[in-house]
Simulated assay, not measured.
Amino acid sequence: MVTNCLNCSTRVEEVWSWRGLFYREPQFLCNGCEKRLEKIEGVRCKGCSRSLETLPSNLVKEEICLDCHRWELDPGWKGILHKNDSLYHYNDFLKEYLARYKYRGDYALAKAFSHTIKSYLTKMDYDHIIPIPLSDERLYERGFNQSTALLEESEVRPSHILTRLHSEKQSKKTRAERLRQVQVFQLVGCDVKDKTILLFDDIYTTGTTLRQAAKLLKEAGADEVSSLTLARG
């Protein structure tokens, strides 16, 4: 079977293997584009998955990065997000790829990560997996929720039990502003008491959005809230 790379349109020929005789995994990227994706490996922050191998020692505190250390020093945020796992470095290739996917409406690009996400989730225990919702404004602009689409292409059924109240970008705010902002999410139609929750988003940047959602869920009685993101910015 021959397909075209979702990124560069190069012909991708299916590689047969003994495993493939029983189960064939479709190839959505050519070898060249696949190699440009950098999986996060080696020593990483236990809080947010940031690679620690290139960080100066003064930015690492007890096996976590300084940013996560600061979150845990704040009584209002300590323990709110159990941990975040990220799959890839947010390098230039992935940045451009996700820009095409999110802002130019190229929904099919989500297929490239379907096998990786599906395989990773088989190793995780959770009662609900919740994609971070977009505001109505952002959803109208893009036409789809990028996080929901990534899960659906991975044959994962998400729980849509959070809604977003507004869409102001966290990256535009100072750290102090992010820490004291009002809640941006609302919980609808589900009892999460004593449940293990996994949040899902495309990119972990400051961690504020995920922690806002986690705080709401913890206040509603969730036992533990973690997150999985495609990339660590």
Rank of each mutant, 00 (worst) to 15 (best):
V2R: 14
V2W: 03
N4V: 11
C5M: 09
N7H: 13
W16A: 14
S17H: 07
R19P: 02
Y23V: 08
Y23D: 11
P26S: 10
L29Q: 05
C30R: 09
I40W: 03
G42N: 06
K46I: 13
G47H: 08
G47Q: 01
C48I: 08
E53N: 12
T54D: 15
T54V: 12
L55D: 11
P56F: 08
S57P: 01
N58E: 15
N58L: 10
L59I: 06
K61D: 13
I64P: 05
C65V: 03
D67V: 09
C68P: 02
H69S: 13
R70Y: 11
L73H: 08
W77D: 02
G79W: 06
G79Q: 04
L81Y: 05
H82K: 14
D85T: 12
Y88N: 01
Y88L: 01
H89D: 08
D92G: 10
E96W: 06
E96A: 15
Y103L: 05
G105Q: 12
D106F: 13
L109H: 04
A112D: 04
F113C: 02
H115S: 12
I117H: 01
Y120K: 15
T122N: 12
K123Q: 13
H128A: 09
P131W: 10
L134N: 03
R138G: 04
Y140C: 08
E141F: 09
R142S: 03
F144H: 07
A149P: 00
S154C: 02
E155C: 06
E155M: 11
P158G: 03
H160V: 07
I161N: 01
L162N: 08
L162Q: 05
L162H: 05
K169N: 07
S171P: 00
K172T: 09
R175D: 09
A176C: 00
Q181N: 15
F185N: 05
Q186E: 15
Q186V: 08
V188A: 05
G189T: 13
C190M: 14
C190Y: 10
V192M: 03
K193H: 14
I197A: 10
L198N: 02
L198R: 11
F200R: 09
F200E: 04
D201N: 07
D202M: 10
T205N: 02
T206D: 05
G207P: 00
T208I: 06
T209S: 04
L210H: 05
A213M: 09
K215S: 14
K218Y: 05
E219A: 14
E219R: 14
A222M: 05
D223P: 00
V225Y: 04
V225I: 07
S226C: 04
S226I: 01
S227I: 00
A231Q: 00
